[in-house]
């Protein structure tokens, strides 16, 4: 116990000062993580408005659109699901495409588990807000406290804003009339491109995406709706399996 060392208060003061400095530094890191989380939440939440509008245009009603943002809560899967429905795909193709795009969240969860160290029930809550953005903010932090703050603030922040903006977009989309006149079909293309863009950092990913474009375009005239997209996923699995042995370099694909 420090109290027993009579006459040596100086080292204690230094230790206390150092502890205080460390605590201050950590508090600063947590505040920076929260700030980052808020700005990411606002930017991401805002485009919920385009999801809401495009979902209604694709043929879902406002309640179905809200159910997707509340229950599915994963931008890529949501846009994909309404894309396949809008293109006249089968129910099986719609579910499979959304599910395949959700597989990356499994890897995010495995990455976050040791950082968050949650009990079973909080894991259920954490799982629901495990998405690209919350994972990216959490894994960008240096301390565990900052990572936790970044994860929850980003996940919950985007959940709230994404749902509010989805509702606004769905109500606006309902009132728009002819979607093509407003260019909303092109907006859906651009939304997919924007989701893809940050993943094209390496040559391997660029070539995979190019192969997907060729396969999908070739299959549009001959296969039923939804199949061209699923076939592209199959191509990626084959490329992934074949290229694994030849070069060990990991493409940095995090967005």
């Amino acid at each position: 116990m420090p109290e027993e060392r009579a006459g040596s208060t100086a080292p204690q003061e230094i230790t206390a000062a150092a502890a205080q400095a460390a605590a201050d530094a950590q508090a600063l890191e947590v505040r920076a993580a929260v700030r980052q989380a808020v700005s990411v939440s606002v930017a991401t939440g805002l485009y919920g408005i385009s999801f809401g509008a495009l979902s209604v245009v694709a043929g879902l009603d406002v309640l179905q659109t809200m159910a997707l943002s509340l229950l599915m809560f994963s931008g890529g899967s949501q846009f994909a699901l309404i894309g396949v429905i809008g293109a006249g795909g089968t129910p099986g193709a719609a579910v499979a495409t959304a599910g395949l795009l959700g597989v990356r969240n499994t890897l995010y969860g495995a990455q976050l588990g040791p950082v968050l160290a949650l009990d079973r029930w909080r894991k259920v809550l954490a799982a629901h807000v495990t998405i690209d953005e919350s994972t990216a903010v959490a894994t960008a932090q240096r301390s565990r406290r900052a990572a936790r703050a970044g994860f929850w603030w980003t996940g919950v922040g985007i959940f709230v804003l994404w749902n509010l903006m989805t509702l606004a977009g769905a109500l606006a989309g309902d009132a728009l009339g002819d979607p093509a006149a407003w260019g909303l079909d092109a907006a859906a293309s651009a939304a997919f491109l924007a989701l893809l863009w940050p993943r094209l950092a390496t040559r391997a990913m660029q070539l995979t995406a190019a192969a997907a474009v060729v396969v999908a375009a070739a299959l549009i005239p001959v296969a039923p709706g939804g199949v061209p997209v699923l076939a592209a996923a199959a191509v990626a699995i084959v490329i992934g399996a074949l290229t694994g042995r030849r070069h060990g370099r990991t493409p940095q694909e995090e967005s």
Partner: peptide, 12 residues
């Protein structure tokens, strides 16, 4: 790769 591939096909 599956994620990028699906998104590229959806763009197409």
């Amino acid at each position: 790769m599956v994620t990028a591939s699906l998104l590229a096909a959806l763009v197409t």
